[in-house]
């Protein structure tokens, strides 16, 4: 057998094996998460090896949302995430437009600043912010947390939007300017409507960061249970032994599901937006 034939034969086996193994290790844990969340804890203890629940029950969900307070945590997470998205977009849209279109003093240095913020370790910033929030009595308050998230997401958001704004034809904007639009008017009436997919993608990206974040939530909110986010709530309750694993698994599903939905919705939306633009030429 020639080397070429041999290699092809090996790869013909190796490729599906790689796909199958990776698919198993990525999909199975999350399927297992769902399956654990719909059974009674006794079943898990008596028969830890079983995959499918013998008797379906939604009791873990009722328990985690009601008694354990996950409804409150979800409300907190939603408030924090939505506020972060709104504020980040509000701040980064003009910023991105400026970097994409306008010549101003220090335009080149701005990129360096953003890269530095993006790469800078959060653990170093956590210390002074923790001290500051303690001194100001802001620990336990959601607006303080939102402020930190805005600063963490604005650089990437500006970067993402800038790339898109640069692809908006200059001529359309110039036409608006000739028709008497000011800079803000041009952004509002021309650039933004043309950039809807990019705005959506950036907003969803910001939402994911704010919903998933753990370190700052832990540092700022841990003493006030009524302000916990879902991430923080799950991590705190998982540390104890009182709450059954199946109930906590229901909590994990509640934490994970919105973000997975948001991600796959945005992925489709993004490709749809791009192909729609291509059809029009």
């Amino acid at each position: 057998m020639s080397r070429d034939r041999f290699e092809r034969a090996v790869l013909a086996v190796l490729r599906p094996v790689t796909i199958a193994v990776l698919f198993a290790v990525t999909a199975f844990p999350f399927l297992y998460m769902v399956m654990l969340s719909v059974r009674d804890i006794q079943e898990l203890i008596l028969d830890p090896g079983s995959l499918l629940p013998r008797r379906l029950t939604l009791a873990p969900y009722a328990d985690v949302l009601g008694r354990q307070g996950f409804l409150t945590f979800m409300r907190n997470s939603a408030i924090v995430a939505v506020a972060t998205v709104a504020a980040t977009l509000l701040i980064s849209i003009p910023g991105a437009y400026a970097v994409a279109r306008l010549r101003f003093f220090g335009r080149r240095q701005v990129h360096f600043l953003f890269l530095a913020v993006y790469l800078f370790p959060a653990i170093v910033l956590a210390i002074p912010l923790f001290v500051l929030f303690t001194m100001l009595g802001l620990r336990g308050s959601l607006p303080g947390l939102v402020l930190v998230y805005i600063a963490q997401t604005v650089p990437v958001s500006v970067y993402m939007l800038r790339n898109y704004f640069e692809s908006v034809p200059r001529g359309v904007e110039e036409a608006a300017a000739i028709d008497g639009c000011g800079t803000l008017g041009t952004i509002w009436r021309v650039t933004l409507p043309l950039s809807a997919p990019a705005l959506m993608a950036t907003g969803l990206y910001t939402f994911m960061i704010a919903w998933n974040e753990f370190l700052f939530a832990l540092l700022f909110l841990v003493e006030r249970r009524e302000s916990w986010t879902v991430s923080l709530g799950l991590s705190q309750l998982a540390g104890g032994i009182e709450i059954p694993t199946t109930v906590l698994m229901a909590g994990s599903v509640v934490l994970t599901l919105p973000i997975v939905l948001v991600f796959f919705a945005s992925e489709r939306l993004l490709t749809e937006g791009l192909t729609a633009g291509a059809e029009k030429g």
């Binding site: 509000l90 010549r103 805005i150 604005v154």
Partner: peptide
Amino acid sequence: GRAGLLLISPTLVITLVV
């Protein structure tokens, strides 16, 4: 130049402060 600085300033302020 002035419009550019004005539009980028919220971004700069929040990075500076936080």
